[in-house]
Design a protein around this nucleic acid. Structure first.
Lengths: 139, 139
DNA sequence: GTTCATGCAAACGCTTTGCACGTAC
DNA sequence: GTACGTGCAAAGCGTTTGCATGAAC
């Protein structure tokens, strides 16, 4: 997997450093949206600076390696762009679960038709609800 | 319209103050997502404090009067909850355009089926792309 | 050797909190 | 009169920036 990352970095014109490989490893280890603080915690032993993580996340997003999500949380969450999917987010405990299904093309086409927009290049779809655990605590 | 707002506030157990009516008026005047700073600017003459706007937005969201959006912007955007729709967001200039179409029920049902979730109570769907104006400046 | 990546400290912007006063009910 | 809304000042938190050093190519 790390080999793939080296290749990916080279391809995007980004320097292949241990720090960057370590950050990408976090994404491939945990297939869930993560924020800068989480990565910092996971890589605590390495002493990688939080600022570096922010800068890396930004350049990865710019290079199309990561995708920044809109999860209505106070910090920014990212995940590997190649791994496109959506999320169920529990409004009570914050649990996030992914799902693949996404028939957005139809919706996109209809939305574009009567708009001032030329094209749609991406989308964000998040479902908010309650997980089974939390709903047990209701009446 | 203001009369409706008075009624709405009473219904939700919130006190009916001039400040709150003024904030709701901004939402009904401009049918677009707005942030605290925008409201503050619009109500500049009244001298309403920015902090009050933040607190009001929070209590309105809690009461279900407003909905907080996930637009990948640095500040939080809100719109009237009753006026449910989605957005096209230009990744270049930030223009936001609304659209009504939303066949999410099907997607929700499929996503729920194999999940650890009990129910879906809301969703967020945003399309990112480029508006016609910005796409003109490309090659 | 040049360019880009990293660390440190400090600044920044949006948002929240504490406290005192004021207003709706 | 009581409970809640508002303003002011200050703090909080996630994030960004400037600058000097260090590593990748």
């Amino acid at each position: 997997m790390s080999k793939d990352f080296s290749h990916m970095l080279k391809e995007k014109g980004l320097k292949n450093t241990p720090t960057r490989r370590a950050i990408l490893d976090v994404f491939s280890a945990d297939c869930k949206p993560v924020n800068a603080e989480y990565i910092h915690e996971k890589l605590k032993k390495t002493g990688i600076n939080l600022v570096t993580i922010y800068r890396t996340l930004e350049s990865f997003e710019h290079a199309g390696i990561l995708k920044r999500l809109s999860l209505n949380k106070s910090s920014a969450y990212y995940e590997l762009a190649a791994n496109h999917h959506h999320h169920l987010i529990c409004t009570d405990c914050g649990t996030i679960e992914g799902f693949k299904e996404c028939d957005i093309d139809d919706v996109s086409r209809k939305a574009l038709k009567d708009s001032k927009f030329q094209m749609v290049s991406g989308h964000s779809l998040e479902l908010f609800g309650m997980c089974k655990k939390c709903s047990k605590f209701l009446v």
